[in-house]
Nucleic acid binder design. Structure first.
Lengths: 210, 210, 210, 210
DNA sequence: AATGAATGAGACTTCATTCAT
DNA sequence: TATGAATGAAGTCTCATTCAT
């Protein structure tokens, strides 16, 4: 391993350390109430150091989303690649995978939507922006692939698989967001799991060919 | 019309003027990037004046949501009260109504979620908080009523109607949010309508009793 | 009574109404935390009206002090004019009079010192400034007269009576201010009366000719 | 000297730099009319920097008082510890010491009273509040000790020494405040010294046992 | 004379970002 | 590379004062 390569690896390690800290802080306080100093403290680094690895706060946030998106894709591909499941089982596995990812990092949903803000996008480097688009498209693509298979096998209704993937993702994130927002007023968190379950039962029933 | 009454009306007009300006600014820049001065400028008033009508920025934002929520409820009740439609037609009309409201004020969805922030809730007056809770509960209640009717008539599957209402609302807002967030990158807005349509077809199919 | 005279009298009545309200509000919250709107509300007038009677907030405050100073002078002159008391009895009566005035308006002491701020003085009209000087000098003069009498009669030590008047006034206000400031931390208010009593015993003993 | 120690010293130096600037500004304009920006400018720092060293404006003000209070105590203990003076000489030395402190920082008196405001106290950290109480109590305690000694030795009248200490302090601050407030109108500052001198002659005469 | 809605300057404070060490 | 003290722009909110009615 060359010296340059070692440096590169060291640099990547540091980046991850910061991202992990940022995740904890953002989870705790949300984007706007989290300060760069909070994150630096959590990472046991100084604020200045953060800027050696990330251009600005928005880019740090986006990188965080990127990382979890990568994790999501791995899980999705694993589901998709499993040839022993029929399409319906795959959708169920999809559901499981998404929930795991959500539990691993509940921020994922909110992250994805924070990225929507055009004010945020303005502060991102082109490179990062492209990467986000790629991963986003890719993960939707994998999901769409699963639906495509179902359609091809005559199990699912004949709709555009990309649209189905969007709906799947929307339903999942919608339920998460909605139940979370209600739970702050109601304090009822267990309800989320139940609602998700029913939501997917309905979704899958609606998906099946008559 | 008494002098007091006229004053009251004048005051209400001014409130609306501010709310309309705030809506435009919040739509444009999002909550955090919008400043009270932006809103004042948009309303052609001075910053101080805003505080004569709204206690603080959070309360101005919440009032904005309240207004659209009231409009939503009127639409929902109109659907529910129509005795000439069967449950399935009602769900379709529900869908239409929600979309109209969304077109009237695309912020409604994001508003509803912004209200979730406990930091936001802390700054609201008790009165406003109670009003929000009431309206929120009420609108969900109307939706649930429609599903209840479908279940009673043996048309829909036998699930808790409140859960079905939550899912309906989640699916709707999920699709809106998701397609909006994608459209910023893709610039493709027409797709939203189509996706919503498919989403509800699937949902309704899944809802029907076998 | 001419119409002009009646108007003048009406105007004066209004001024007093505002001063009374201001006293209550300033007593309650202190100068800086009291707003013109607070005072207007207490006087059951509108903020704008206050400015028809007083040039600005500082001048309103100063006028308030003036009024209590006038009351003080009446009390002092009454003591001084009583020919049945010997000098020592007069100093004791002085003490009583000051305490009565203090109880009637505890703000008097703080008022007198607030007037010291050159920033405050800058905002006062020349006329008011002169009036304050006059009354201030006059009240000190009456006190000094009492000490002069004691010196003339050979009862008090031979010091400049104006200086003695200043000391008397300083001791009184010093004890009031100091005990008030302590009482906020200690919550002990009864101590004030006792301390004042001892203070004057010591003062009078020190005043007497050997 | 370790690196940490040097940093600590540097930090303390900066704190003092700010306190010195604040003293000048507060002296000049009083608490309310002084802005944090004024102080920053005087200290040749940016406003933000002030907040690295002091939690808020009130705490900056209180720290300023604390500093001078510490200096006062040193002087008072020095007087008290001198075994070659009799009680009367000690009270005279007390007087001198207080005047020196006053000349070193004329704000001390006003500071002590500003601290009284419960609005101010609310904004102070518990630690600072406790420190102020301690020092305040301590300085009064030292003064009371001197009077106690005079009483024990049969030189002073038999009154509660704490009360005498309060009176001493009140008389001193009363004269200072009163003469300062007059001098703004009269422009006569030399008179202060004389008045203080007479005040303490009278006080000491009144203190002595017959 | 009286009103009170509106003003807008300005206060305090925060925090993303920079830069000398 | 890492630091962290310092910056200073910007945000929210208050309130003395004005002015059209």
């Amino acid at each position: 391993m060359g010296i340059r390569e070692r440096k590169e690896r060291e640099r990547e390690r540091r980046r991850q350390q910061i991202i992990v800290a940022a995740k904890r802080v953002f989870s705790d306080k949300g984007f706007n109430k989290s300060t760069m100093e909070d994150i630096a403290k959590e990472a046991e680094l100084s604020p200045g150091t953060l800027y050696l690895y990330f251009k600005n706060k928005d880019e740090l946030y986006a990188s965080l989303s990127l990382r979890i998106l990568q994790y999501l894709i791995i899980r999705l591909e694993h589901v998709n690649g499993n040839n022993e499941m029929d399409p319906i089982q795959k959708v169920e596995a999809l559901n499981e995978a998404m929930f795991d990812v959500y539990e691993f990092d509940p921020l994922i949903i909110i992250n994805m939507f924070h990225l929507q803000s055009s004010e945020t996008l303005k502060n991102l480097s082109d490179e990062l922006l492209r990467e986000i688009e790629d991963l986003s498209r890719k993960s939707l693509g994998v999901i769409a692939g699963i639906f495509q298979e179902g359609i091809d096998k005559g199990v699912f209704i004949d709709e555009h698989p990309i649209a189905l993937a969007d709906i799947f993702w929307s339903l999942f994130s919608g339920v998460i967001l909605w139940e979370s927002s209600k739970s702050i007023i109601n304090g009822n968190k267990d309800y989320l799991r139940d609602t998700l379950k029913i939501a997917f039962e309905v979704f899958v029933r609606g998906l099946k060919k008559a």
